[in-house]
Simulated scan of single mutants.
Amino acid sequence: MTMQHHDVVPTTVGGRTRGVSRAGIGMAVAAALTLGMGAVQTADAKETIRCVFPFWFGFAPTFVAQDLGYFEEEGFEVTVVFDNDRANVYPALESNDIQCTQRTIGEHIARPLTPDTNTVVIGLTDISVGADGVVAAPDIDSVTDLIGKTFAGEINHPGTLMTAHALQQAGHSFDEVDVRLIQTDDSPAVFEDPDVAAVASWEPMLSEIVRNTSRQGSKILLSSKDFRGLITDVIIVNKEDYEAKREMYAGFMRGIYRAVDLYNKDPEKFLEVAAPHFDVTPDEMKADLGGVYYTSYEDAQEYFGTGGPAKLEDIINQLNDIQVSLDLMDAPINYAAISDPTLTKGLFDGYER
């Protein structure tokens, strides 16, 4: 696998994530701290969970739970700032300057995470079921057609992980592909290069590339809907704070799963509350949620194995193989070392849902 590095600068877009400059990122974390300090200095001081996570509609249940008073009923509040850069978010999370982040499990377990890192996975928020994928040139009909050709994408992008996984399943290695490292926001322009056989992207850019490219006959080669569960977003919190305030974090997860219940029962109300937080209309948000599956409490029970094998453990094992091969991890990491499935069991016993 040869790597072609291109100088890239994050840009601002809608959809899965919104990049900001490193200066902006530092300001985002600082803003999260300021929000939290303001909350605890009020006369009726409440516990506050400060969250920093990427701009992604999959994380909307947190906003809905806060705005509809689900967290207030549990005796605390949640503040949120958008920020996609792990290099700034994770040090703040480990030191308890912030208490929570949300992102894909693949991103989370990548370097520099170790079993001793002061974080723990306690819940789910959503699964990509078509929101991420790979667009291929007209002459690429299967993932093995990429061997010896140029694939463009971020090394930790869900589309890159899916490509590596699909090649492994076909008896090949990602090392057999030439990789051009790009910023995902640049994927439409990069795909216009005839030397690029495929590009990793996410919605809405994924469909826009197919629809607008000059390379007629291009298609979505791989979609996260065909790898259900591989691209799962999880909720990660500071481990020491979680162990000291376990019931507060149980309330946090109850609030989020109640928000998902609302989406399943009354999506219009959910979107009405959530959309302003992303500076879009409810209709715009609805259009971009086609590839997103919000995970319910029942899904969490399956993924954390409260009644049998943990599906999340199987996903982490698959990601271990993929990400070690991509040099995103030094060694495989154990599911039990980085998560606490016990919070999910009986989460709503004695509580309103």
Score class of each variant (00 low, 15 high):
Leu312Lys: 01
Gly308Met: 11
Ser128Gly: 14
Glu94Gly: 02
Pro341Met: 09
Gln168His: 10
His157Ser: 13
Thr48Asp: 02
Pro158Arg: 04
Leu35Gln: 13
Tyr70Lys: 13
His277Asn: 11
Gly75Met: 06
Val143Met: 14
Ile338Lys: 00
Cys51Gln: 14
Leu328Trp: 02
Met162His: 10
Ala39Tyr: 01
Thr48Val: 15
Tyr297His: 15
Met253Trp: 02
Asn317Ile: 10
Ala250Met: 08
Gly251Leu: 09
Pro91Met: 00
Lys219Glu: 12
Asp97Gly: 05
Phe55Gln: 07
Ile333Phe: 01
Tyr90Trp: 15
Pro112Lys: 05
Gly171Arg: 13
Gly15Ile: 11
Leu68Ile: 13
Phe63His: 15
Glu284Arg: 10
Glu284Val: 12
Lys311Val: 14
Lys149Phe: 04
Ala200Cys: 09
Ser339Cys: 03
Met3Trp: 11
Ile316Trp: 01
Asp340Tyr: 00
Asp299Trp: 09
Asn96His: 08
Ala92Gly: 04
Glu298Lys: 14
Gly255Ser: 06
Val234Asn: 05
Val177Asp: 07
Ile49Ser: 00
Ala136Thr: 09
Glu247Met: 07
Thr344Trp: 04
Thr344Ala: 12
Gly69Met: 02
Ala274Ser: 05
Asp241Arg: 05
Ala32Asp: 02
Asn320Pro: 04
Thr11Phe: 09
Ile236Thr: 03
Gly130Arg: 08
Ile209Tyr: 06
Val190Asp: 04
Ile256Met: 10
Arg258Thr: 13
Ala39Gln: 11
Tyr249Pro: 00
Glu298Val: 12
Lys219Tyr: 07
Ala39Pro: 03
Asp226Ala: 12
Trp56Gln: 04
Arg50Tyr: 01
Phe53Asp: 02
Ala164Leu: 07
Glu73Phe: 03
Lys239Leu: 03
Ala39Asp: 09
Gly290Ile: 10
Pro267His: 04
Phe304Met: 10
Val190Leu: 03
Asp283Ala: 15
Glu77Arg: 09
Met27Asn: 12
Gly217Leu: 11
Ala31Met: 10
Gly255Pro: 05
